[in-house]
Design a protein around this nucleic acid. Structure first.
Length: 366
RNA sequence: GCACAGGUGGCCGAGCGGUUAAUGGCAGCAGACUGUAAAUCUGCCGCUCCUUGGAGCUACGGAGGUUCGAAUCCUCCCCUGUGCA
């Protein structure tokens, strides 16, 4: 069963700007997606995300499977309903955890055995299982189960990792197509279904990347992601991979770079034609006191802001910058107040979303 | 007044003759963070010099003393807590 609707449609004539027509949201691209791993964009409530203009956020298969469990979420009508989020939702497959939980897992051709970071219990993830969990969660977009290749990786290692990711992509797609109508809101939303994206791997080896992209395109996913970037490689390498892979991916389907980046990076990739990006950086850095501003990085914990009554970013009109001073934000984080993480996250997300809004406006003009 | 228990670097708190400028923790100062095991992690944190590495000075309530050597032992004094008068 393949999709019966056109996921991607161009908008402004001649422009590169487009929309992604998802069951829960029409997403204007290019789009930045805040990361809400465990059913929450940490420290920021859903109504605030809406007012910031977030169109789509991420959830994580592995985390939500462990807690509260995908079956409970299915029974409650899916992740959208559980977290009360009416807009777009994308679930990562757990593939990134194959990389980030390296100390807690063992990989085989069939799948990955994880030891839970919560209680040490053992769990086996296969592409099919990841699909089952993601279908139960019911995000608008599910991701193929992949292995995020570490950096540095030898060519042989990257090749082997890629072989695995390609085999898993095939299995992910077959299983997903067979079951995608089982998502909790399928009937409620007039028979609409989730989409599944394939993930390009191949490390920093451009020929492997090209091979990966071509094979995925042959499989005919609903969209394509470039994964395995920003894992420690030089920025030129990141850029080279994106430049090589992007032209190989169909323009009429969403193209997504996973896990990037700094403000200048997401702006650059958006201008190159990337439609979607996600990153924990704006929220994690915010909780740690790092603000992204029109004048660069600002570590709001620094003593120099102790009595600074200026807004965090004078050029920003977000709800935080309109109301609170640097001195107050510094005080909050020094005092360990949870509100620090919230306000800092709101600003950083506003900053990131603002970049995308600006790029969209420019691209829309051709 | 008597009896115990104590007084250690900004705070709390180890150490109880040498390897102690003195373990830890907190606070403080700075740095990192890229599909979130992250409200986390790392570094610095007595003073003054020179280049890493060092050099000098000052330090464990106060004053004396014992000792080659004392935050650690002794004497006296001051102060704090608890109990009894």
């Amino acid at each position: 069963m393949s999709l019966t609707f056109n996921l991607m449609r161009a908008t402004a004539a001649g422009g590169r700007r487009a929309q992604i027509d998802l069951p829960h949201q029409t997403v204007e691209t290019p789009v930045f997606m805040p990361v809400g791993t465990a059913g929450s964009v940490k420290a920021v409530a859903q109504d605030v995300l809406e007012s910031l203009g977030a169109q789509i956020i991420l959830g994580n298969t592995y985390h939500l499977y462990l807690r509260p469990g995908h079956e409970p979420i299915r029974r409650m009508g899916g992740l959208h309903r559980l977290i009360s989020w009416p807009r777009g939702l994308l679930t990562d497959s757990g593939g990134f955890q194959v990389y980030s939980l390296a100390q807690l897992r063992r990989v085989s051709d069939d799948g990955v055995r994880f030891r839970s970071h919560l209680d040490g219990s053992s769990h086996f993830f296969t592409p099919e299982h990841s699909m089952d969990v993601q279908i139960a969660l019911g995000a608008d977009i599910a991701m193929a189960f992949d292995e995020c290749t570490e950096y540095p990786a030898t060519r042989e290692r990257a090749q082997e990792s890629l072989r695995l990711t390609m085999a898993w992509a095939r299995r992910s797609l077959d299983h997903f197509r067979a079951h995608q109508h089982e998502t909790p809101w399928h009937e409620e939303l007039g028979g609409r279904t989730q989409s599944l994206f394939g993930i390009v791997q191949g490390g920093v080896y451009t020929d492997l990347r090209r091979e990966s992209a071509e094979r995925l395109v042959e499989m005919d996913f609903d969209g394509y992601a470039i994964g395995g970037l920003s894992v420690g490689e030089p920025r030129e390498a990141t850029l080279e991979v994106i430049s090589e892979v992007l032209p190989l991916l169909p323009k009429d389907k969403p193209r997504y770079v996973m896990g990037v980046g700094y403000p200048d990076e997401i702006e650059r990739y958006a201008r190159m034609g990337i439609d979607m990006m996600d990153c924990v950086l704006p929220t994690r850095a915010a909780r740690h006191g790092l603000l992204f501003t029109s004048e660069g990085r600002m570590n709001i914990k620094n003593r120099q802001y102790a009595e600074d009554q200026n807004p965090p970013d004078p050029a920003c009109d977000c709800m935080v910058c309109r109301r609170y001073s640097r001195a107050y934000l510094r005080h909050l984080i020094q005092a360990g107040e949870p509100l620090a993480g919230t306000l800092n996250s709101i600003h950083n997300l506003a900053f990131y979303l603002g970049i995308m809004r600006r790029v969209r406006a420019e691209l829309g003009q051709g």
